[in-house]
């Protein structure tokens, strides 16, 4: 058969090649990725790399400025700020990833299902999503915390719930377009059930926008957690959390010991910034129109 001769060339890139390509084409995204990786390493190996225990008080060294013994200084209770920021990364990433993934996947299934079934199911689901979307993320999260109380699990729930409609909305838009493509009809003529068509045939086709959204969600969730903690409705003392540290430092020591607030603030800003940069770069890298041949 002649078709074989003018076959499109098979493009197979190994992971390392793909990674090298990403680094070359997306320098800002790479910078974002580095921040994310550093935060992840800090969170994962806090026990080994933190110089002090995050809850150990050194009453001889309270509100100390950065020094060789305490690189980022100490807070009003004599706790080492660097150690608390390292442990805080763990709190931030656990809450960020769990909320983003749970909220993202719930939104993915709801969004694709909504588009696939259409009709009144779509109508009802979308109106419920509209109601949830009417509240800004932080207000919604505050309401959930007010109902369930504080603590890590409740904070995760508080951030997950408002993320669901945001994800479902975007995923539904992509899935609606896919719903009309003949291969979905073809799947139905092959006798596949609804669950199989949704999960095997539609979900993989909306994965690109979904992954990008997921990275952005992790950043948003970290920011939401910091905000809730700052307002005293999130993680409770003595658990090390960046928002909490910021609040403790900003209220009384903004002028006398600014490092107590500045360093956790930088940690929050950098991490969120890192996830955003990485998400943007990921979108560009996945978008075939922006990809050079």
């Amino acid at each position: 058969m002649t078709a074989i001769a003018n076959d499109p060339p098979e493009i197979r890139r190994s992971w390392t090649q793909a990674a090298r390509l990403f680094v070359r084409r997306q320098p800002l995204g790479t910078f974002g990725l580095v921040i994310v990786v550093v935060a992840a390493i800090a969170g994962l190996s806090a026990e080994w790399i933190a110089p002090y225990s995050p809850t150990a008080n050194d009453f001889a060294a309270m509100t100390e400025p950065p020094s060789l013994a305490h690189w980022l200084g100490t807070d009003q209770f004599g706790r080492d700020l660097l150690s608390r920021i390292i442990y805080g990364a763990r709190t931030a990433l656990i809450i960020g990833f769990v909320s983003a993934f749970v909220g993202g996947f719930a939104g993915l299934v709801l969004g694709v299902g909504s588009a696939y079934f259409g009709g009144w199911i779509d109508l009802v689901l979308q109106r419920v999503m509209d109601i949830l979307m009417a509240f800004p993320l932080i207000i919604m999260a505050l309401a959930v915390v007010a109902i369930f109380g504080t603590g890590v699990q409740n904070v995760i729930a508080a951030i997950t719930i408002p993320l669901i409609p945001r994800c479902a909305r975007v995923v539904r838009a992509s899935a609606l377009a896919i719903r009309e493509v003949p291969y979905i009809d073809a799947a139905r003529t092959s006798g596949f059930g609804h669950a199989r068509i949704i999960l095997r045939h539609m979900v993989p086709n909306v994965v690109a926008p979904f992954l990008i959204m997921l990275t952005a969600f992790v950043g948003q969730a970290i920011l939401a957690e910091a905000s809730l903690s700052y307002l005293g409705l999130g993680v409770q003392e003595p658990t090390p959390a960046w928002g909490l540290m910021l609040q403790g430092g900003a209220e009384e020591y903004a002028s006398t010991a600014p490092w107590i607030a500045i360093f956790p603030g930088i940690a929050i800003a950098l991490t969120v910034f890192g996830f955003s940069l990485f998400g943007d770069a990921l979108r560009d890298a996945i978008d075939p129109k922006l990809r050079e041949r």
């Binding site: 003949p182 291969y183 073809a186 003529t189 092959s190 006798g191 596949f192 095997r200 045939h201 993989p204």
Partner: peptide, 24 residues
């Protein structure tokens, strides 16, 4: 009906470019 579709009656569509799932 699902057993009939694909099992006893097959279907060929108009658009071969879009009737196959691109990710499978």
């Amino acid at each position: 009906m699902r057993k009939v579709r694909g099992g006893e009656i097959g279907m060929v569509f108009q658009e071969p470019m879009t009737s196959l799932n691109p990710v499978l």
